[in-house]
């Protein structure tokens, strides 16, 4: 019997529900581990690339309201109301979103950085760093120089990150993730695949994540004892 549960998570950096879902999943996984005690399996997480808006330019001169109003044709007041709602939900999850300083950008290079980080055992740290930088700190996560700075903050080699991003070293891995998402039928993110058999869509409540992990683990344990 394997003593771990594998969670594959499809998400985008520019996805407010992905950061909220990440936090809720972490809370749920911690609750599951506590409930399971000494017999708790390791929960192994791997992030996968999903671009919500691949046509977004790297540099956009304006804030999030400007972007959604001009590029998506949404009334500014409606956008403002939506952002206030998301900010409130994020706050309840312990995240201080700041859309006033957010720098809307293309995320394909950020996804490549996450693959670079995965190859060096730093993907979880890099994912958290990029999401926090984008949603709470107003940092730019589309330009390679800015991404290299953020990579260095989680202990990666800045110069080598620059080389990798400038040469699109991991672009094929990004595309492979997107192809697999399509094969799974993923239509929105965050999307969680558990042990390659179960799918969980969206920013579920922490208790739901804990319940799902309990269910999967109970089924695995039961199957092993039959």
């Amino acid at each position: 019997m394997s003593e771990s549960i594998k969670i594959d998570i499809w998400s985008d950096i520019a996805c407010p529900w992905c950061y909220i879902g990440k936090r809720k999943f972490e809370t749920g996984a911690a609750a599951f581990a506590e409930q399971s005690g000494d017999g708790a399996p390791d929960v192994i997480v791997e992030y996968h690339s999903y671009e919500l808006s691949p046509d977004t330019p790297v540099d956009f001169d304006g804030d999030e309201i400007d972007f959604l109003a001009t590029h998506k044709g949404m009334p500014a007041e409606q956008v403002r109301g939506m952002l206030e709602h998301v900010t409130g939900v994020a706050k309840a999850a312990g995240l201080d979103y700041n859309f006033d300083i957010l720098k809307h950008t293309n995320t394909v290079k950020a996804h490549q950085l996450l693959h670079y980080a995965k190859a060096r055992g730093k993907q979880i740290e890099a994912t958290e760093r990029l999401l926090a930088a984008y949603f709470t700190e107003g940092r730019h996560v589309g330009r390679v120089e800015d991404l290299a700075d953020l990579a260095a903050e989680v202990g990666l080699d800045r110069a080598d990150v620059l080389r990798s991003l400038q040469s699109d070293e991991f672009l094929s891995d990004v595309r492979a993730d997107q192809a697999l998402a399509q094969e799974y039928g993923v239509q929105g993110v965050p999307f969680f695949v558990i042990d390659g058999k179960y799918g969980v869509s969206g920013a579920q409540e922490a208790a739901t994540f804990a319940q799902v992990l309990e269910q999967v683990w109970a089924e695995r344990t039961e199957a092993a004892t039959v």
């Binding site: 919500l52 999030e64 952002l83 239509q187 993110v189 869509s201 579920q204 269910q215 999967v216």
Partner: peptide, 16 residues
């Protein structure tokens, strides 16, 4: 598994 109506972002028009 999980709730079927949990919030997520979908496609180009749903970054928010």
């Amino acid at each position: 598994l999980g709730e079927t109506d949990a919030v997520s972002c979908e496609g180009d028009s749903c970054a928010i």
